[in-house]
Design a binder for these strands. Sequence first.
DNA 1: AAAGTCGGCAAACGGTTGTTTACTGAATGA
DNA 2: TCATTCAGTAAACAACCGTTTGCCGACTTT
Lengths: 207, 207
Amino acid sequence: MSHTPGVRQAQKQQSRRALLDGALGLLEHQNLSGIGVREVTREAGLSPAGFYRHFRDLSELAVVLVEESLASLHGMIRRVLAESGDSEQLIDRTVDLIADHVREHRAHVRFLARERHGGVRAVREAIAAEFERFAEEVAAGLGAQPASEGWPAADVRMLAELYVEHMVATAAAFLEAGPAGEGRIARTARTQLRLITTGRRHWLDEG
Amino acid sequence: MSHTPGVRQAQKQQSRRALLDGALGLLEHQNLSGIGVREVTREAGLSPAGFYRHFRDLSELAVVLVEESLASLHGMIRRVLAESGDSEQLIDRTVDLIADHVREHRAHVRFLARERHGGVRAVREAIAAEFERFAEEVAAGLGAQPASEGWPAADVRMLAELYVEHMVATAAAFLEAGPAGEGRIARTARTQLRLITTGRRHWLDEG
DNA sequence: AAAGTCGGCAAACGGTTGTTTACTGAATGA
DNA sequence: TCATTCAGTAAACAACCGTTTGCCGACTTT
């Protein structure tokens, strides 16, 4: 354990992780504006002063949490876009993936839902910027599908935003409902997606 | 100013209003979990102890704010449902009404968006319950329209929820965008509503 | 006019907060 | 091996916090 560079870095990363995880844990039941530096360090097993070796303040830590939370969400979206099959199967699969994601990343999803319109500007903006990128990615995916042939780019974009918005709302509903109401949420989400798909199919026929 | 009953009550109501308004003002830039009793009383021009003559704690006050915020929203929804005309005009009018409402009740809307998934359970539940009632009201309105002839009740309900969700998302987007981006938000919202309407028109044609 | 009600206040309670300070000791590089 | 770096610490700081207490004085009732 000596003269091997990196030990120090690794220990620091470990503390940093403990701070991030501790904060995420506290944010499960509280708001970002409702937790404090001391509380987080207590949760992480550090002294209060130790916090400042890693972050300037709590909102800086929170922005890192945003990035981590959306990285996992990003993976999910890519998985959704990679699916293939008829639209019915695709819808089922999409809703299942959302449900899985909420189950496996409950804390992340809750954090995003809570702070998306929360009281800390920097965090709000970080989330908004990342959702923007999601919409772009979804738009690119939709644009590549045969169903979007002949669509103006702006229309593809608004459809992508509708999908993203619906996905976020569905995830939040899963959260709030708990395991019991999961079935009902999923059924509603699927039907709504079917209706949107119907509209999509006839979009160019009229108006 | 004496021996006339009601003076006391009126003065008390005035203080109560000052507390509610003060809190709503603070909530414009902060989270509910981020403000304190003392802060609110300072804003309202009362002493800290005075607060407890009106509310047990801040979340009790917040629940009252929820009711007031949703009363105004409720009025807007009724106005939307009362509109008549072809679907194109109806969509335009709806989005305009949402924009108006956000302009005139900025603080209320912000408060709802912020605390809908916020850290205080009682408040979250109060908002959720009221949104539930909205969905029912919208469902009743949709069910009465000729366009819903032959629709199963469950489908009407899910459409209502989709509309409500979209309305809330649009209002939140107006908030975040400010006057500058208002046009873009409105355009997107209108197009999305047109797509949903298209889906609605062809809902019974296919599987 | 006297008695009662009660909204608002000042003061005090113990407790928490964010942040800075000077320090220690292990990991590091020469 | 010896000097340096630096993550983590304990302690202190002043500033708040929520809540309770006892009291006052204006309204209200009798």
